[in-house]
């Protein structure tokens, strides 16, 4: 069953690879704009060999992880606070609704205006994008704690801060982790857009710059790299999430 499922997954990707190879070669699509996969992979290997790819990947990962890490460090405490203090939640809720429904990239020009074209604005926009799912999930996690568990702990005369530490926090961990996993995906998505504006390195820059200079092969190589990177990041976070929520298996 597992094997079959695995085969099917590989099958779909193989199919995509074959289509990508065949369509340009048979002339169904213009190979100037979509070169065959094998040529793209050769370009990828060349980029890797010169070390250029590594430089861009490092630049990208650095930004992405910085924004992502800062988002975790800021959004979790803030989310716990908002989830715990009802009046604060009531006060902030309209604001949260407004911002969560504003497309992140619409704010990119604002970030650039305020923080300049350098690293600060790039990391800031990633931080901003990644903070939302963590913040909202943390709030939902705290709010969603089974009232009976709170009642049970309260009946033991547990003071508020220990109730928080011993019940609210552990109970919300799985929900918070879902937010972290989503944030990981967001931080990769926004990264590319951020690097298309005023960057001198990074995979987003590579893709954009290659397209500009008609290095179509390199452009696709960059795209493949970033999608593999995103995939790996997600797999890593998903396995972490599973590890922290085993107890939620059947409740």
């Amino acid at each position: 069953m597992h094997l079959l499922k695995g085969l099917r997954r590989v099958a779909a990707i193989t199919l995509l690879a074959v289509v990508w190879e065949v369509l340009p070669r048979t002339g169904v699509v213009d190979r100037t704009f979509l070169p065959p996969l094998s040529e793209v992979l050769t370009a990828l290997a060349n980029l890797a060999a010169t070390g250029e790819l590594l430089d861009h990947t490092q630049a990208s990962l650095g930004r992405s992880l910085a924004g992502f890490g800062l988002a975790i460090a800021l959004a979790i405490p803030l989310g716990l606070l908002i989830g715990w203090y009802r009046p604060l939640a009531d006060f902030l809720n309209p604001l949260l609704e407004l911002f969560r429904n504003t497309a992140t990239l619409a704010l990119l020009p604002v970030f650039v205006l305020l923080l300049g074209l350098g690293e600060t604005s790039k990391i800031a926009i990633i931080l901003y994008a990644a903070a939302w799912p963590i913040l909202l999930n943390t709030i939902a996690g705290v709010r969603g704690v089974d009232p009976l568990l709170i009642k049970s702990a309260r009946s033991l005369g547990l003071p508020a801060h220990r109730l928080f530490q011993k019940v609210i926090l552990p109970a919300s961990v799985p929900t918070i982790f879902t937010g972290i996993r989503l944030a990981g995906a967001y931080s990769m998505l926004v990264l590319v857009a951020a690097e298309m504006v005023g960057a001198k390195a990074g995979l987003g820059y590579l893709i954009n710059y290659a397209q500009f200079n008609f290095r179509v092969h390199d452009m696709y190589a960059g795209i493949i790299t970033i999608s593999v990177l995103g995939l790996l990041f997600n797999v890593l976070l998903a396995s972490l999430e599973r590890r922290f929520s085993t107890w939620r298996a059947t409740s």
């Binding site: 009976l148 309260r154 033991l156 109970a171 961990v173 409740s251």
Partner: peptide
């Protein structure tokens, strides 16, 4: 005047902490 450890409660729905 409040909850305390001189009384223990057992609830219908167990109220066990699922992560423990």
């Amino acid at each position: 005047e409040g909850p305390g450890l001189d009384r223990g409660i057992v609830f219908q729905q167990y109220a066990l902490f699922p992560w423990r």
